[in-house]
Design a protein around this nucleic acid. Structure first.
Lengths: 340, 340
DNA sequence: TCCGAGCGCTCATACGTATGAATGTGCAGG
DNA sequence: CCTGCACATTCATACGTATGAGCGCTCGGA
């Protein structure tokens, strides 16, 4: 009834437990073929399977990679956000023969997922963990790093102390390229639509945008460019009447609001104003926006490789990686047209 | 640098390792408040976290539930199929404080996922496992059961030997209800469109269908009803000309083909023929079919509860559960109309 | 004063595996 | 015949935790 151990196999094969261990874990240097055969036969007969916990206890390795998200992995609202990452993570883990632990237990009643709950951290079950999520908890990240736990984070996160290994979409250069391509079309007067949030990912986009605007000598008098968020009625009036022919929006939602607001003022996209979006999947329902697409699946795969690299060389200095983003053409960008 | 153990905490708090163990795992009966405080302070100071592997080795319990799918969890084609199950699984696991292990490693080159590879079974890392997948491997299922491993299967699977605990959509009664509602609308002459596959889930639907047809004294002369699959041109001709006013299809794809075939013969859905589908999500893109909807998310949740019940009472007889399905109204069913 | 009981804590051990060190055996060379 | 050595195998231990048994102390009751 109870699962057989190496000791049981050993008894049946007439050898010692350590011989069994050596055979099942492939350390066959000093064991003659014939003995191996006997042991393997016994393994098969008893249906022996290694005990992962014991193995882990001994080795500190489990061929098990964790995935921790700071929000539920599969909530409807964020479905698109996580899904592609997971796809890549699973795909790559499967390819290289690792299993995945989804750390879902919270124990917290506030809905937020914490790594450390009542002082305990379940993550150490896995050899290392991929961290994910918009609402990453900075303190936990810092503590995890200071504890020497192996992890990589998808998306850049900066925490005082030391660098954290991140897999980061290259928003800076992609945004720059996007602006450049608009400028190549002849656009000179730009506006920038900013989300309310101040996460690293948005900061990167803003850097890339500002760099391109300055390098190309473009004009931007929008509040978003100067650090004020929002899409006010006043500003929409200005925009409809002003010289701007191109708008760069940080999100689809903002772009949709813009479309509505402009339509109310008799302006259309892209005839009057071209719009490009800095976050899209390339296949949203509804309008086909010209947008920047984060290669999420690819990033998931890279995260796994980076994590495995860390697991295999725990002492190497952790490094972050930039991943190039794609620009996808849609139906919301055209050449500039002088407004009447 | 190395993670602190209970022994380290004990040293700092001036107690023994076992005292620490008792406090951290809540067995505080015989330890006075003051000592507990001291120990907890030491835990905090050192940043002690329990070692899950050691705990598991000792207890055989890990608060870890496995999820094994016989195909990749997140492939595009089957996205819809698995996704909702996982949603429920994750949601419920989170609620009751379990983590999830996604068994993704195959080690096989044929793309099929096997539980037992080179004789070893990684599943035993988890306390129990939810098995999932259209391509369930019967042999592995039987072996798993015979090994005494704790699992539940989503979807009914029958394997010679003994019963396997399954969480099963109640296709029989749902199909019966669906046919009954069509009959209530006045339909008398039915046709049945059968998929090529012979899985348990389809068998159930056919049983339910047959039961309803016989109970209500309906007519069905379709090949699908008599065990032949497919949607031939000949049969479409018959159908277009015959007395049938209602068709029950096993899948959306079949129904779409039917729509095309009928349209080519000048027949429309639902004006000439009402169609109901025995497998849908209720929000397919395209036509809104009247269909039977499997409550996948709910089933995922139930699977977790059933699994946990097994984990907590390993000696109880495993039982399968039927889960009621919903009928969703669409735009493809109307009252019968006499054909000209 | 002595005994029993309860309390607070520690001892010792088992869980299953991996691995460096040790043991024993057989054989060739001197 | 003894030495040295290669080879096959076993020994012994450590990993970190949980827990039944055990130990010493204190206190109340007779």
């Amino acid at each position: 009834m109870k699962a057989p151990r190496q000791a049981d196999v050993a008894l049946l094969a007439g050898v010692s437990q350590s011989a069994v261990s050596r055979v099942v874990s492939g350390d066959t240097d000093r064991i003659p073929e014939e003995t191996q055969q006997r042991i393997r036969a016994a393994v098969k007969e008893l249906g022996y399977v290694p005990n992962a916990a014991a193995r882990n206890l001994r080795n500190k390795r489990n061929r098990l990679l964790g995935v921790h998200t700071f929000e539920a992995v599969f909530p409807h609202a964020r479905e698109d956000f996580y899904f592609e990452f997971l796809l890549g993570i699973e795909e790559r883990a499967e390819e290289i023969g690792y299993d995945l632990v989804l750390f879902t237990s919270t124990g917290a009643s506030d809905g937020r997922r914490r790594i450390y709950r009542d002082g305990t951290n379940r993550l150490n079950l896995a050899d290392g963990t991929v961290l994910l999520g918009a609402a990453t908890d900075r303190e936990e990240l810092a503590r995890l790093r200071d504890d020497g736990y192996l992890f990589v984070h998808i998306g850049r996160r900066e925490v005082p102390g030391a660098e954290i290994p991140c897999i980061v979409p290259d928003y800076v250069s992609a945004t720059d390229r996007l602006v450049t391509s608009l400028a190549d079309r002849g656009h000179r007067h730009f506006a920038y639509l900013r989300e309310g949030m101040e996460q690293e990912a948005y900061v990167d986009r803003r850097h890339g945008y500002r760099a391109a605007v300055e390098r190309l000598g473009l004009r931007d008098r929008s509040p978003g460019f100067h650090g004020e968020p929002g899409l006010t009625e006043d500003w929409l009036d200005e925009l409809a009447a002003g010289p701007e022919t191109a708008v760069v929006a940080e999100g689809i939602r903002l772009a949709e609001e813009l479309r509505t607001g402009l339509a109310a003022r008799g302006r259309n996209i892209p005839e009057d104003v071209s719009v490009a979006v800095l976050e899209g999947s390339g296949d949203e329902p509804g309008h086909r926006w010209d947008c920047l697409v984060v290669p999420r699946k690819k990033i998931g795969r890279i995260a796994i490789d980076a994590l495995v690299a860390r697991v295999e060389h725990p002492d190497a200095e952790p490094v972050s990686q930039l991943v190039a983003c794609d620009l996808v053409a849609g139906e919301t960008v055209a050449g500039p047209r002088a407004k009447e």
